[in-house]
Write a protein that binds this DNA or RNA. Structure first.
Lengths: 101, 101
DNA sequence: TAATATACTAACATAAAGTAAGTTGTTAAA
DNA sequence: TTTAACAACTTACTTTATGTTAGTATATTA
C-alpha cells in the first residue's frame, strides 16, 4: 500500500525531520561545524546514543559531512553539506513561527 | 538538567513537528478542513490509531480545531487554527527544499 | 436482516528512544 | 607511574512510541 496522493519528496523530508532530535541537530549546525561533544552540550536532553544514531542517518542522507582531522588527539567535526545548509530557510520560518505563537 | 542554550520555543516546535506524521497532517490540512477518513486516505501508510493520537495532540497545542456538525450521521471536521495556518511558510520552504534536493 | 460507512478505541506486538555503563586511545595530574 | 580525565563513541538493557489487527457505536443502504 502506497500513499501516491502526496509528493514522495515531501514525505521523505518528513521521514528525516520527523524524527526526534534531527531538526535540532541541523539547527545548531547552521551556526557552523561542531564536534560531538559541542552538540551534546548544546542539546543536553539528548543522549549520546541518539546523537550518534542521528549523525549516521544525516550523513547517509548527505545532509552532514564528517571531517576527521588527524591531530593528536584526533578531532572530529560535523558540518552541513550544501543540501543541509539548504534547510536554513525552513528553520528560519520555523523560528519565526515559534517566536510568534 | 535543562538545555538552556537553545530557544525553548524552538524546541517546543520540534517536540511537536518532530513526531512522526504531525508534519504531514498539518500539510494536508493546509489545503482545507478535512474529515478523519479523508486524511487516512491521503496518508494511507499512517494508522487510524496514530491519526487519532496526533489529532488530540494538535488540538491540545491549538494547531487544529475539531468541528462537530450535528447532522445525521454526524460529520466531524478538523481545521487548522490561525496558529496552525501560520505553519504554511514553513511547509512551503520545506516543499522547495524537498523539490530541489 | 445483512452489509456498509464514519470515527474512533482496545489489546497486543514490534520498533524506536532513553539510561547507564563500558571501550579505545590519548593526554594531563598526583 | 599509576591515576584520572577527556573525546567519541558502543553495548546492554528498559521504557516509550508506533504498528497491527480487531472491535465498538451509531446510522444508512440493499
Amino acid at each position: 500500500m502506497e500513499d501516491y496522493q502526496l509528493c514522495p519528496k515531501f514525505e521523505n523530508a518528513f521521514e528525516l525531520l520527523g524524527k526526534r532530535w534531527t531538526g535540532l541537530i541541523v539547527h545548531v549546525l547552521l551556526s557552523g561545524p561542531k564536534r560531538f561533544k559541542d552538540i551534546s552540550v548544546l542539546i543536553p536532553s539528548m543522549s549520546d546514543r541518539m546523537l550518534s544514531e542521528r549523525f549516521k542517518e544525516l550523513e547517509a542522507a548527505e545532509i552532514i559531512i564528517r571531517h576527521v582531522y588527524p591531530e593528536t588527539p584526533v578531532r572530529i567535526e560535523y558540518e552541513l553539506t550544501p543540501k543541509g545548509k539548504g534547510l536554513k530557510p525552513v528553520m528560519d520560518e520555523l523560528q519565526k513561527w515559534a517566536d510568534s505563537h
